[in-house]
Amino acid sequence: MTISMDDSRPIFLQIAERIENDIIEGGLPEESQVPSTNQFAAFYQINPATVMKGVNLLVDQGILYKKRGIGMFVATGVKAKLMEKRKELFYEQYIVTMVREADKLGITADQLTEMIRRGDKA
């Protein structure tokens, strides 16, 4: 099975993001073992060296840690850390763009707040 990656960015970043997502969504609880490089490679049909690069990125950030001879594990307390990071990203990616677009269309801050409330119910 081929799971297509986004063409615009390096795959190792996308792998790191997928693991982060799994941690945030609870698929990979803290202190649980992460699938091996080769399992990832086989699952996504991706070069193992690329997967390794993505995993190492997370190891460098202290999100994953290595247990010798056993494998990779999710570090304690990283879920909150990741959520924080994602919130910042969310602000940059969505809020800033949204406010700019709203400004262009002449939507006031109040109207925007109202729209968000409506979106929540939908």
Partner: peptide, 14 residues
């Protein structure tokens, strides 16, 4: 073709 990629990656890993 997909089978080829699967087997290639599995065997390359080992």
């Amino acid at each position: 073709r997909s089978l080829f990629y699967d087997r290639l990656l599995e065997d390359y890993a080992e």
